[in-house]
Every structure is written in C-alpha cells, then in structure tokens.
Design a binder for these strands. Structure first.
Lengths: 135, 135
DNA sequence: ATATTATTTCAACGACCATTGAATCATTGT
DNA sequence: ACAATGATTCAATGGTCGTTGAAATAATAT
C-alpha cells in the first residue's frame, strides 16, 4: 500500500519572517555561529569580522523573529549572551523538512493546458522529459 | 558511543539566493502550488489570484535561482508549464535539514565572557536556565 | 493579413533594507 | 564622581525589491 501524503501544506505566519531573517549572508553566518554554541557578541564580532553595531542590528533581527534569545552575564552585566531558541528551531526545521521534501513533490502535470486536454494513449505531457540539473 | 556530528557547516553559494527567493509570501505560495504538481501560469493566476505580470515576475525569480524549470506546450506554444526542479530541491532540502537540525545545536556556552572565565564547581553559565518558548 | 490568446518586458513608484559613522545607554572599575 | 568597557540606538545613504499599468512578444486561430 502506498504511503499517504498531504499535498496541500498551509504556511504558518512565522515561516516567511524566519526565511527573510536567514536570507542574508551575514545573518546566516551569525546564526551558523550560534548553532555551534551560545556566544557573546564580542566573540562574534571578532570571529565574523563584523562591526559591533552591524552585528547588533542583525542579532536584533534574529531575535525579533524568535530564532535567538539573549541574556546578560550574571557577574558582569555589560556582557550579553546569545543563544539559538531550540524550540523555534525545531518548529522551523520540522516544517521546512516536510515542505521541501523531494518525495512530496508531485511531478505529474496538472489538468491544465492543451497537452493535457488532448490526453489519451500518447499524451505528450506524460512523455515529456525535463532537463536534469547538474550540480 | 555518541554519534559524531560536524559542528562547522559551510554555506554553499546557492543557499542565500534560494532563501531570498522563498522569503516572500507570494513566491512561497507559488512554489507550494508547484510542489503540488506541474502547472501553467494561467492556472496559477486563477488559483492564487495574482495579476499575470506579477506572477511572471515571481516565476522568473524562482527560475533564476534554479528552483523552477519551464517549457512550452508541445501542441500550443502559447502555453508555458512550470515545474519544481527536484534535483535542486533535494539539494536544498538536504542542506537545510542538516543545518537546522535541533539535535545539532550546541547549547553549551562558548569560552567567552566573565561567567565562563570564573568557572568552577558552581559555574553560573552552566546552571542558567533559558526561557522556554511557548508556541 | 488581422485578431486573439498566453505570457513577458518595460518604466516607474514607494517601501524596505544592509551598511556606515557618530552618539547614547548600561554597567563596572578606580 | 569619573573613566572605561560592552553593546545599542540614531540618522543618513545607497541599493534592492514587490507591485502596478501599459506596452510588447510569441504563437495560434480566423
């Protein structure tokens, strides 16, 4: 028996803002760094070679979409630590993993256009071979 | 024995453009529609309620980043069909799945900041409990 | 040839956004 | 109080991007 799959996935509100937040080279690098462990912004500045104010800006974007949390140092309040919010991460991971699953992608032509209208034993749409991408 | 995991993932060139392409509500809806099956733009216009020229614009963006392929109808060349490129999709899916894997996220504090410098039997950084996000 | 259909291109507007330098805030040390 | 440190905010700039309406292609039908 064939495995059942829902072909119509709805898109939660959080997804687009999160994708926007990650769709920037610097922010993606910052997020990647935070995935390697909680860190303070001074360390990130040095590690990523970004000006402190720019880093602060990007960290705020990541924080505002819920991907990152922050807290002050308990012994020296001038330092702030940043950490990935694993709950949000897990949510995003799960949704994207389902949404982008190649096995879910239906490649059958929709009932749409003259090719499909003129279907029969030799439907041209069914026989068409798409170019394969070379990576 | 503990499962080994690379904590330093490099970011392929394609990732940011692809995230940018998907980080738009209309394009994400278009892509979601294409994941349900190959379609012509007339059908998408009607289904998604977007003006034809706007749809064309977004389809071009998706095509330029390699997410989508197009071809003309073999019996009526005025019609164009759009389809998700499963090879690119699989690549993106695999990378994002690894990158955003919550199990990969290291929550240990980096060697960074006064808390960690003053570590010992009662390291405050190790005992700190981050807020849990309610979804 | 002319008209019609499906789709794309063009120009232009407004909004948003990443980056920069200077100023400000918050906290700790002297 | 004052200086020093970690980090944020502010204002300004230049560029990018989504959207719109009109014009232009491309292909078929009459």
């Amino acid at each position: 028996m064939q495995k059942e799959m829902a072909d119509n996935v709805d898109i939660p509100e959080i997804i687009v803002p999160v994708l926007k937040a990650l769709a920037d080279p610097n922010r993606l690098r910052i997020f990647a760094a935070l995935l390697r462990g909680t860190s303070c912004s001074g360390w990130l500045t040095e590690e990523l070679g970004l000006p402190a104010n720019l880093l602060s800006h990007h960290l705020r974007v990541l924080r505002e979409v819920g991907l990152v949390q922050d807290r002050r140092d308990s012994v020296d309040g001038r330092w702030i630590y940043y950490q990935v919010d694993v709950v949000v991460l897990a949510l995003i991971h799960q949704w994207l993993s389902t949404f982008l699953d190649p096995d879910r992608a239906a490649l059958q032509p929709r009932l749409c256009g003259p090719e499909v209208a003129a279907k029969g034993s030799n439907n041209p749409a069914a026989n068409f071979v798409w170019e394969t991408t070379t990576i």
